[in-house]
């Protein structure tokens, strides 16, 4: 087994080994720094031939993550490869927090704000992180 990644943990559910409780720490230097984000990860029947399903449970202000916590990330869609692992997927999600991509948006309003006034958007993201990702 590979060594654990700092700031990421994935624990299988007691009743369902396909279901993982994931916690990702907001990366340093990003507006999500200091936040602790909960995600759920589910391995479908076809895994690893099809991608795991991942969703943010903690509210987050990010152009590639929508209100329901769904994530726009190529490796979770058409760029999925069975050679990828849960570990690499979660690392990619953590990287997405460091580098939001407003040109390929999922949450349009957030992406718009990110493009028009990045400073303001980052401020909002910090605010949301403080409000929703630091409580517990």
């Amino acid at each position: 087994m590979a060594e654990p990644v700092p700031g990421i943990s994935a624990i299988p559910d007691e009743s369902n080994a396909r279901y993982f409780h994931v916690v990702v720490a907001g990366p340093e230097g990003s507006p999500f720094e200091g936040g602790v984000f909960k995600l759920e990860l589910f391995l479908p029947e076809e895994y690893p031939m099809s991608a795991p399903k991942v969703r943010f449970m903690t509210k987050i202000y990010h152009p590639n993550i929508d209100k329901l916590g769904r994530i726009c990330l190529d490796i979770l869609k058409d760029k999925w490869s069975p050679a990828l692992q849960i570990r690499t997927v979660l690392l990619s999600i953590q990287a997405l927090l460091s580098a939001p991509n407003p040109d390929d948006p999922l949450a349009n309003d957030v992406a718009e704000q990110w493009k028009i006034n990045e400073g303001e958007a980052i401020k909002t993201a910090r605010e949301w992180t403080r409000l929703y990702a630091m409580s517990g």
Binding site: E46, M49, I75, K79, S81, P82, A83, L84, T88
Partner: peptide, 14 residues
């Protein structure tokens, strides 16, 4: 599942 024929690429990432 995906109905792909001539566009299946190598299973490796990227």
């Amino acid at each position: 599942e995906e109905g792909m024929g001539n566009k299946i690429s190598c299973a490796a990432h990227g």
